[in-house]
């Protein structure tokens, strides 16, 4: 049985998720001058309400329309900018759709072999314990070929942030089954739908790692509507700040849209997350730090 929604279902059952968010945050009528050399300037009579985060490079991204990656890249760089830690941040890019992440983020970055990001980040962080080190990985990279590196890095409590984009497919190689592919979901390598007999059930990484003592903060978020984007940003802010505490690994799983490989429009993909993905991957915090552990946390740097 396919669990993909027909177009009709999507349209008739579509709740207006964006409406509330838009009403809460009605965009002010302002005119911006275009950013120049990554610096936004406003004329006196205008109020600056938004600018591209400076650490996000002003280049065209290769991502498909509706893809979650570009949005998460932006959120990451917003956090880096707000915390003013561009000079103290080192990222590790994966193999997968985000393989070119270092082309978009104006920070020092290392491109890891497939699945090895957590080991590479371990090498970086152990030698530079005061730097902010994060990995950015997809579900094939992190939960299939790299599950050993991931589990052991978390078990050691490496003081890194692991950003885990879970879109239930291999995106870059164009839509093969991932360890997180939903039951019954059709992919190019499960043309009749994923079955338990052949492949078992989707791995819930956040739930899998959260019992490990080295896991400090584990949360699952999404970026498919405005409220979820805000919550993801908050989670990333927390995770970056928690690195100052040297208490363990922060793991931020983000359910990402993949309209191209889900064979959906971007809008349909948002609904697919709301109706299907969250059944297997419920959104929310999986493991929160103890209040005691947060006592020494300072704001900003």
């Amino acid at each position: 049985m396919s669990i993909m929604k027909t177009e009709e279902e999507v349209i008739t059952k579509e709740p207006n998720l964006l409406q509330g968010a838009l009403e809460d945050h009605a965009l002010p009528e302002t005119k911006l001058t275009l950013p120049e050399n990554n610096v936004c300037e406003t004329e006196d009579e205008y109020e600056l309400v938004y600018h591209r985060p400076v650490p996000l490079l002003d280049v065209n991204m290769h991502y498909c329309p509706g893809c979650a990656h570009s949005l998460v890249h932006k959120l990451l760089m917003e956090v880096v900018e707000e915390m003013n830690i561009q000079d103290k941040t080192v990222g590790v890019a994966p193999v997968g759709c985000a393989v070119f992440a270092y082309d978009y983020m104006n920070i020092d970055m290392t491109e890891a072999a497939h699945g090895r990001a957590a080991a590479v980040a371990t090498g970086i962080k152990r030698l530079m314990p005061d730097k902010y080190v994060f990995t950015y990985q997809g579900d094939g990279d992190l939960a299939a070929i790299g599950i050993a590196e991931t589990l052991h890095a978390v078990n050691r409590g490496e003081n890194i942030l692991i950003v885990f984009i879970n879109n239930a497919v291999y995106g870059m190689t164009s839509g093969q089954m991932a360890p997180t592919t939903l039951m019954g979901m059709k992919t190019t390598t499960t043309p009749f739908g994923r079955t338990n007999e052949a492949y078992g059930s989707p791995i819930r990484m956040s739930e899998l790692i959260s019992p490990l003592p080295g896991a400090f903060y584990v949360t699952r978020q999404a970026v498919h509507n405005a409220p979820s984007v805000r919550r993801t940003k908050k989670a990333l802010q927390n995770a970056f700040k928690y690195q100052q505490l040297h208490k363990g690994t922060c793991f931020v799983e983000i359910i990402g849209n993949c309209p191209s490989n889900w064979k959906m429009t971007p809008v349909e993909s948002e609904k697919f997350i709301d109706y299907e993905m969250v059944k297997t991957f419920p959104l929310g915090d999986v493991k929160l730090p103890k209040a005691d552990d947060l006592k020494n946390l300072t704001e900003g740097q």
Partner: peptide, 19 residues
């Protein structure tokens, strides 16, 4: 650091060498 495998060892070297 005793890594979880040689695969991890060489990639930790990669991270440290890159830094």
């Amino acid at each position: 650091l005793q890594a979880e495998s040689e695969v991890a060892s060489i990639n930790m070297v990669y991270g440290a060498a890159g830094a």
